[in-house]
Amino acid sequence: MKGKIILPDEKIKKPTNIEGIYLIKNYITNKNILIGDYTYYHCDNEQEANEFQNKNVRYHFPNFFNDNLVIGKFCSIAKETIFMMNGASHNYNAISSYPFYLYVNDEELKNQMLAQLPNRGDTIIGNDVWIGYQVTIMPGIKIGNGSVIGTKSVVTKNVPPYAIVAGNPAKIIKYRFDRAKIIELEKMQWWNWTKEEINNKIDLICLNSSF
Protein backbone atom coordinates (compact mmCIF):
# COMPACT_ATOMS: atom_id res chain seq x y z
CA MET A 1 0.00 0.00 0.00
CA LYS A 2 1.52 3.31 -1.10
CA GLY A 3 0.72 6.49 0.76
CA LYS A 4 1.61 8.69 3.69
CA ILE A 5 1.59 5.91 6.26
CA ILE A 6 2.09 2.18 6.19
CA LEU A 7 0.24 0.34 8.92
CA PRO A 8 2.15 -2.84 9.79
CA ASP A 9 0.61 -6.27 9.93
CA GLU A 10 -1.59 -6.27 13.03
CA LYS A 11 -0.13 -9.66 14.03
CA ILE A 12 3.38 -8.25 14.44
CA LYS A 13 4.37 -8.02 18.10
CA LYS A 14 6.79 -5.11 17.77
CA PRO A 15 5.67 -2.90 14.87
CA THR A 16 8.35 -0.17 15.03
CA ASN A 17 12.00 0.35 15.91
CA ILE A 18 10.98 2.82 18.61
CA GLU A 19 11.80 1.22 21.95
CA GLY A 20 8.98 0.08 24.19
CA ILE A 21 6.07 -0.17 21.72
CA TYR A 22 4.40 -3.59 21.70
CA LEU A 23 1.09 -4.55 20.07
CA ILE A 24 -0.22 -6.14 23.22
CA LYS A 25 -2.98 -8.25 21.62
CA ASN A 26 -0.28 -10.54 20.29
CA TYR A 27 1.00 -11.35 23.79
CA ILE A 28 -2.37 -12.41 25.24
CA THR A 29 -3.31 -16.06 25.77
CA ASN A 30 -6.08 -15.53 28.34
CA LYS A 31 -9.42 -16.03 26.55
CA ASN A 32 -11.08 -13.58 28.94
CA ILE A 33 -8.85 -10.71 27.80
CA LEU A 34 -9.84 -9.31 24.40
CA ILE A 35 -7.73 -6.57 22.83
CA GLY A 36 -8.17 -4.87 19.46
CA ASP A 37 -5.71 -4.39 16.62
CA TYR A 38 -2.89 -1.84 16.95
CA THR A 39 -3.47 -1.20 20.65
CA TYR A 40 -0.03 -0.93 22.16
CA TYR A 41 1.45 -1.18 25.64
CA HIS A 42 4.53 0.95 26.31
CA CYS A 43 7.03 -0.79 28.56
CA ASP A 44 10.74 -1.32 28.96
CA ASN A 45 11.13 -4.69 27.26
CA GLU A 46 9.32 -7.64 25.71
CA GLN A 47 9.32 -9.56 28.98
CA GLU A 48 7.01 -6.89 30.45
CA ALA A 49 4.73 -7.25 27.42
CA ASN A 50 4.61 -11.01 27.97
CA GLU A 51 3.69 -10.45 31.62
CA PHE A 52 0.94 -7.89 30.87
CA GLN A 53 -1.97 -10.31 31.27
CA ASN A 54 -0.76 -11.38 34.70
CA LYS A 55 0.93 -8.28 36.16
CA ASN A 56 -1.22 -5.50 34.71
CA VAL A 57 -4.54 -7.32 34.89
CA ARG A 58 -4.95 -7.92 38.62
CA TYR A 59 -7.30 -10.21 40.57
CA HIS A 60 -8.75 -11.70 37.40
CA PHE A 61 -10.46 -14.97 38.34
CA PRO A 62 -13.03 -15.60 35.58
CA ASN A 63 -13.79 -19.07 36.95
CA PHE A 64 -15.32 -17.35 39.96
CA PHE A 65 -16.54 -14.05 38.50
CA ASN A 66 -17.00 -14.71 34.78
CA ASP A 67 -15.60 -11.27 33.94
CA ASN A 68 -13.71 -10.08 30.87
CA LEU A 69 -11.31 -7.27 30.07
CA VAL A 70 -12.17 -5.83 26.66
CA ILE A 71 -9.95 -3.16 25.08
CA GLY A 72 -10.66 -1.64 21.67
CA LYS A 73 -8.46 -0.82 18.70
CA PHE A 74 -5.72 1.83 18.44
CA CYS A 75 -5.45 2.42 22.19
CA SER A 76 -2.26 3.80 23.78
CA ILE A 77 -1.55 2.21 27.16
CA ALA A 78 1.30 3.63 29.19
CA LYS A 79 3.67 1.68 31.42
CA GLU A 80 2.35 0.29 34.74
CA THR A 81 -1.33 0.73 33.92
CA ILE A 82 -3.34 -1.56 36.22
CA PHE A 83 -6.72 -3.08 35.43
CA MET A 84 -8.36 -4.21 38.68
CA MET A 85 -10.86 -6.99 38.09
CA ASN A 86 -13.76 -8.27 40.18
CA GLY A 87 -11.63 -10.74 42.11
CA ALA A 88 -10.32 -7.75 44.09
CA SER A 89 -13.74 -7.33 45.72
CA HIS A 90 -14.63 -8.57 49.20
CA ASN A 91 -18.02 -8.78 50.90
CA TYR A 92 -17.86 -6.19 53.69
CA ASN A 93 -21.57 -6.58 54.50
CA ALA A 94 -20.96 -9.94 56.16
CA ILE A 95 -19.34 -10.21 59.60
CA SER A 96 -16.06 -11.23 57.95
CA SER A 97 -14.71 -9.81 54.70
CA TYR A 98 -12.26 -12.72 54.36
CA PRO A 99 -12.69 -14.80 51.14
CA PHE A 100 -13.68 -18.08 52.79
CA TYR A 101 -15.17 -19.24 49.46
CA LEU A 102 -11.63 -20.17 48.47
CA TYR A 103 -11.72 -23.07 50.92
CA VAL A 104 -15.38 -24.14 50.95
CA ASN A 105 -16.08 -27.68 49.74
CA ASP A 106 -19.85 -27.20 49.78
CA GLU A 107 -20.79 -25.94 46.29
CA GLU A 108 -24.12 -24.50 47.38
CA LEU A 109 -22.53 -22.49 50.18
CA LYS A 110 -19.71 -21.36 47.91
CA ASN A 111 -22.17 -20.16 45.29
CA GLN A 112 -24.08 -18.23 47.95
CA MET A 113 -20.87 -16.56 49.06
CA LEU A 114 -19.90 -15.68 45.49
CA ALA A 115 -23.36 -14.29 44.76
CA GLN A 116 -22.97 -11.80 47.61
CA LEU A 117 -19.65 -10.46 46.36
CA PRO A 118 -19.63 -7.13 44.50
CA ASN A 119 -19.42 -7.87 40.79
CA ARG A 120 -19.53 -4.97 38.34
CA GLY A 121 -19.18 -7.16 35.27
CA ASP A 122 -16.78 -6.68 32.38
CA THR A 123 -14.26 -3.87 32.16
CA ILE A 124 -14.62 -2.32 28.71
CA ILE A 125 -12.20 0.18 27.20
CA GLY A 126 -13.28 1.79 23.93
CA ASN A 127 -11.23 2.54 20.83
CA ASP A 128 -8.52 5.20 20.48
CA VAL A 129 -8.25 5.62 24.25
CA TRP A 130 -5.05 7.12 25.71
CA ILE A 131 -4.27 5.77 29.17
CA GLY A 132 -1.46 7.56 31.01
CA TYR A 133 1.37 6.30 33.19
CA GLN A 134 0.43 4.32 36.32
CA VAL A 135 -3.32 4.65 35.84
CA THR A 136 -5.51 2.28 37.85
CA ILE A 137 -8.88 1.27 36.42
CA MET A 138 -11.31 -0.29 38.89
CA PRO A 139 -13.54 -3.33 38.16
CA GLY A 140 -16.41 -3.05 35.72
CA ILE A 141 -15.49 0.41 34.44
CA LYS A 142 -16.61 1.45 30.95
CA ILE A 143 -14.35 3.97 29.19
CA GLY A 144 -15.71 5.59 26.04
CA ASN A 145 -14.04 5.94 22.66
CA GLY A 146 -11.43 8.66 22.25
CA SER A 147 -11.10 9.45 25.93
CA VAL A 148 -7.89 10.42 27.75
CA ILE A 149 -6.96 9.19 31.24
CA GLY A 150 -4.38 11.36 33.02
CA THR A 151 -1.21 10.02 34.65
CA LYS A 152 -1.70 8.18 37.97
CA SER A 153 -5.47 8.58 37.86
CA VAL A 154 -7.71 6.10 39.67
CA VAL A 155 -10.81 5.53 37.55
CA THR A 156 -13.78 4.63 39.74
CA LYS A 157 -16.64 5.76 37.47
CA ASN A 158 -17.48 5.29 33.82
CA VAL A 159 -15.84 7.76 31.41
CA PRO A 160 -17.88 9.26 28.54
CA PRO A 161 -16.53 9.26 24.96
CA TYR A 162 -13.87 11.89 24.24
CA ALA A 163 -13.67 13.03 27.86
CA ILE A 164 -10.36 13.93 29.52
CA VAL A 165 -10.28 12.72 33.11
CA ALA A 166 -7.63 12.93 35.83
CA GLY A 167 -7.19 12.58 39.57
CA ASN A 168 -7.96 10.18 42.40
CA PRO A 169 -10.78 9.53 41.99
CA ALA A 170 -10.67 10.58 38.34
CA LYS A 171 -13.00 13.41 37.38
CA ILE A 172 -13.86 14.96 34.04
CA ILE A 173 -11.54 17.89 33.29
CA LYS A 174 -13.03 18.71 29.90
CA TYR A 175 -14.11 17.15 26.62
CA ARG A 176 -11.83 17.01 23.61
CA PHE A 177 -14.53 18.28 21.24
CA ASP A 178 -17.98 19.80 21.42
CA ARG A 179 -21.04 17.57 21.57
CA ALA A 180 -21.83 17.79 17.84
CA LYS A 181 -18.31 16.71 16.88
CA ILE A 182 -18.35 13.86 19.40
CA ILE A 183 -21.60 12.56 17.92
CA GLU A 184 -20.05 12.79 14.45
CA LEU A 185 -16.93 10.92 15.56
CA GLU A 186 -18.96 8.21 17.23
CA LYS A 187 -20.78 7.67 13.94
CA MET A 188 -17.56 7.86 11.92
CA GLN A 189 -15.83 5.01 13.83
CA TRP A 190 -12.59 5.53 11.94
CA TRP A 191 -10.93 2.69 13.85
CA ASN A 192 -13.08 0.27 11.83
CA TRP A 193 -11.87 1.64 8.50
CA THR A 194 -9.62 -0.47 6.29
CA LYS A 195 -5.91 0.26 6.16
CA GLU A 196 -6.42 1.91 2.79
CA GLU A 197 -9.18 4.17 4.13
CA ILE A 198 -7.05 5.19 7.11
CA ASN A 199 -4.12 5.92 4.81
CA ASN A 200 -6.23 7.99 2.45
CA LYS A 201 -7.76 10.03 5.28
CA ILE A 202 -4.79 10.25 7.65
CA ASP A 203 -4.79 14.06 7.44
CA LEU A 204 -8.39 14.10 8.66
CA ILE A 205 -7.58 11.82 11.58
CA CYS A 206 -4.30 13.35 12.73
CA LEU A 207 -4.15 17.07 11.90
CA ASN A 208 -5.87 19.62 14.13
CA SER A 209 -7.00 21.78 11.23
CA SER A 210 -8.65 18.89 9.38
CA PHE A 211 -11.63 18.41 11.62
Rank of each mutant, 00 (worst) to 15 (best):
I202P: 02
W193L: 05
A166Y: 08
G144R: 07
V57C: 08
D106R: 03
Y162E: 08
I124Q: 06
T151V: 15
I198S: 05
F52M: 09
I173C: 14
F83H: 06
N26K: 00
Q47G: 03
V148N: 01
L207S: 03
F52W: 03
I131E: 03
D128T: 07
K31I: 11
A163H: 01
V135P: 05
K11V: 06
C206N: 15
K201W: 06
F65N: 12
I202D: 06
R179K: 14
D128K: 03
N91I: 00
P161L: 01
E107Y: 14
I35A: 05
K181L: 15
G146N: 00
C75Q: 03
Y92F: 15
F177V: 11
Y38F: 15
N56R: 13
F74C: 02
W190Y: 11
C75Y: 00
Q47I: 14
F64T: 06
Q112A: 08
G3W: 05
L69K: 02
S209T: 07
N26G: 02
A49D: 00
P62S: 14
I12Q: 10
K201V: 01
L207G: 00
T151R: 15
D122C: 08
K152Q: 14
K11E: 08
F64M: 13
V70F: 01
D9E: 13
F64P: 12
I182E: 11
I137K: 00
N66C: 14
K171Y: 03
K79V: 05
K4D: 13
V154G: 09
K187Y: 14
V159R: 05
E184S: 10
I143D: 00
Q134F: 00
Y27V: 04
D178H: 13
L207R: 12
Y22F: 15
Q112M: 09
S210M: 07
K201F: 04
K171Q: 11
P160H: 02
G36L: 07
G150N: 04
M84S: 09
H90R: 10
N111W: 10
